[in-house]
Design a binder for these strands. Structure first.
Lengths: 88, 88
DNA sequence: ATTAAATCCTCACGGTTGTAAGGATTTTTG
DNA sequence: CAAAAATCCTTACAACCGTGAGGATTTAAT
């Protein structure tokens, strides 16, 4: 099921719902994901100040995938790779 | 165009590509979005420590939409609204 | 209704983030 | 190729984040 995010805090609801769908508690989920229970609780309550990388870790741990939706013309610039600049 | 994110840092490429597709410089984009040029540069280079809320602000400013993809059974828990608990 | 379980909140701490300014480096332009 | 433009990097600073511990509050179970 694909859910568009219309504001940053909304991801908290998704995280909580995903965890509950798996019938696991915050502390157990946090433990297996590798973050603190405090942190997971913070995310679920919609705190926007959390670090993107840690949030992504949580999403991965809960089987939530992120898809970015961009205008089609952006694709051409995506293929302009930064690592094709002789930095191998 | 929908692009799945397989790691947190990849969003930097999307942000840069989106900005370039609009033919605007980092400092101009940052100014109109309301963040520092330093910060935008950091995001584009794939820094995962950036705050989720600020990142979302940048994505919005560049017309990038975020979609979360969850298993269908999560939907039922999403409808279990927290704000339906007499807090109006 | 009472008790147990789960979640939220506070505190303290070491480490860190976004901003602004300015210079170094890279990329683009002509 | 040289110069201009754009981006990256460093420094300093005030505000702050993730963790862990422990208690307060809310929710679930009986």
């Amino acid at each position: 099921m694909k859910i568009p995010l219309d504001h940053a805090a909304a991801i908290g609801n998704v995280v909580r719902a995903s965890r509950k769908a798996q019938k696991i508690r915050q502390d157990d989920a946090a433990g297996s994901i590798g973050v603190s229970e405090n942190f997971l609780g913070k995310i679920e309550r919609g705190d926007e100040s959390v670090q993107w990388g840690k949030l992504f870790q949580v999403l991965e741990g809960l089987g939530v995938r992120i898809v970015v939706d961009v205008p089609d013309n952006v694709a051409a610039w995506l293929n302009e790779r930064r690592d094709d600049r002789g930095r191998s």
